[in-house]
């Protein structure tokens, strides 16, 4: 986030683009329509940046992450049945699916998976994994691809993202290798690919359901997720009440909270409007 703030300060254009996007989303929410009605397929390139053999995750592990994203973003995840009955009606198909890229930027065939050796034992949350000069891998053009970097991260971090409208060179998401996919080195309680689901949510402009403040004053700019005070962790018991949001409390089973993989289960209708607005706006060239 320090980087996010730094960008807002250093790159006035980023601030303007974010403000413009919020204005468009506001209009979209008022109108209740999206330009894209069909399902968007997002071409994905996965940069596996590794030092040790363990970090060089298999193609099967990468594909398991893509499969997890497809279930979650089409609301075909079987565990959505665990959503409390009061919110079952809000579980919404995001109309987005994902496929490993089949052509590279030059138009040649590709598996969509790049293996890049590094001397870095772990990367901080400063975008260094996204540039060869700092031991990482250069992103493919963000107008066409979702860049996903998979590596070891410092400070126990599971992943981080970049919102729409930021610099093209660093656009994409970063995920810890042991929290990526549903097989191989993926480790419980982060073995269902939901770190990917959460980070792609940010890439499509979703905010955390607690609004990124700890005093109930923040917002996620989404009307159908109750205001919440803090991130929830682990596997909370329903209901968990904060910010006078009783009797149902925090929607901690939303993909944009901080719970374990097996406790996050859904996007809401208004979150889908926000994501689709980003596909109509700053990500309009994706999947076209």
């Amino acid at each position: 986030m320090q980087v996010h703030h730094r960008l807002l300060e250093r790159d006035p254009e980023f601030r303007l683009r974010q403000a413009e996007l919020e204005r468009k989303i506001h209009n979209r929410l008022a109108a209740g329509t999206s330009v894209r009605q069909a399902v968007t397929t997002v071409p994905v390139v996965v940069h596996v940046v590794y030092k040790t053999a363990d970090e060089k995750i298999t193609a099967a592990q990468v594909k398991s992450q893509i499969a997890a994203l497809n279930k979650d973003y089409r609301a075909t995840n079987p565990d959505k049945s665990k959503v409390p009955s009061v919110w079952q009606g809000l579980v919404t198909d995001a109309r987005v699916q994902f496929a490993l890229a089949t052509r590279n930027p030059a138009g040649n065939k590709t598996s969509g998976i790049l293996y890049v050796r590094t001397t870095q034992a772990a990367f901080p949350d400063d975008d260094s994994v996204k540039a060869p000069a700092t031991g990482g891998s250069a992103g493919w053009p963000s107008a066409r691809y979702l860049n996903v970097w998979v590596c070891s991260l410092g400070d126990g971090l599971l992943g981080y993202a970049q919102f729409p409208g930021g610099p093209a060179k660093t656009d994409g998401i970063v995920i810890l290798n042991r929290a990526f996919g549903t097989t191989g080195t993926a480790t419980a309680p982060f073995r269902l690919g939901r770190t990917g689901t959460h980070e792609v949510g940010h890439w499509l402009n979703l905010r955390h359901i607690w609004g990124d403040t700890e005093d109930c004053s923040g917002t996620d700019f989404v009307a159908d997720t109750p205001n919440a005070q803090h991130p929830n962790y682990g596997k909370p018991r329903f209901p968990h009440v904060s910010c006078q949001n009783g009797p149902n409390g925090d929607m901690f089973m939303n993909y944009m909270d901080y719970v374990d993989d097996d406790a996050m289960l859904m996007f809401t209708a208004q979150q889908v409007v926000r994501m689709q607005a980003s596909l109509d706006g700053p990500r309009a060239t994706i999947g076209k």
Binding site: M1, Q2, V3, H4, H5, D125, D155, L157, L158, G159, Y160, A161, Q162, F163, H198, E199, H202, R207, H208, D212, E214, P231, Y258
Partner: peptide, 11 residues
């Protein structure tokens, strides 16, 4: 230091 809106640490 807290997790920020994009999950990076915010100081």
């Amino acid at each position: 230091a807290r997790p920020g809106p994009d999950d990076r640490r915010q100081r």
